[in-house]
Amino acid sequence: MSQAVTPLLEVDNLKVNFHTPTGIVRAVRGLSFSLGRERLGIVGESGSGKSMTGRAILDLIPYPGEVLADRMLFRGEDLLTMPKATRRKLRGRRISMVMQDPKFSLNPVMTVGDQIAEAYRVHHKANAREARERTLTMLEAVQIREPERVYALYPHEVSGGMGQRVMIAMMLIAEPDILIADEPTSALDVTVQLQVLKILDDLVTSRSMGLIFISHDLHLVQSFCDRVIVMYGGKAMETMPASELADPSAMARRHPYTLGLLGCLPELGKPKGKLSTLTRDPEWLA
């Protein structure tokens, strides 16, 4: 990938603060990264600020949260200073997000097909028939075998894996430049998880989109992404090529937190009497 092209997204010193009666909760504390047409993984434990980062990019941080940054550029356009209405137009059209659990993210009283068609018509001028056709093509693209039948199903009638594919179809139908996937497969069984990832991977690659893949699963991120940011307490501990996470010779360069995370995972074929537990150094957040 050539670095001369403007990155899709540039974030400098991003901070997300929540003003609560008991003081300021700093969910993200000065995160900087840039995203090209690649798969960028953000890993961390709960409370590390990884989901808040995704939401901050989309301007989805609710009151009393505030988003501060020195710079936040989407293809050179300043996201921070642009009018709310312009930013709203980007959301869903140019940058969109797949959430963790289809059970809670889909509208329960609308068929999945109509929901996808609606997403298309919000962003494109199209009549109902065109939108329906686009939806059926999209359902096919996420490898749903009988798109006509699935179109008419309600969310409670589809399985978890199919629900997640419906979500992906809905987010990709507007053909965004950036897709943020927040734990898109954590609610799924391992075998289904791989099918969904494969679909996501094919679509992202064939449309040359930028993907931000948020996950708590180190193995998954390492095997799926190009680059990885390891977050802890709202800060990036380190950024590295994903391949280095599995490379024993690169371990000396790893941040102690990353090593800690890797060390506490039980592994097949490597019996460990006692799992090592993480010792957290307050200096990391200094």
């Binding site: 434990e45 708590h216 180190l218 995370l261 506490c264 995972l265 039980p266 799992l275 537990t277």
Partner: peptide
């Protein structure tokens, strides 16, 4: 649970 907490609970159970 998070992986680091998982390790603690598994050690405890062992």
């Amino acid at each position: 649970l998070d992986v680091s907490i998982q390790a603690e609970v598994l050690n405890l159970l062992q």
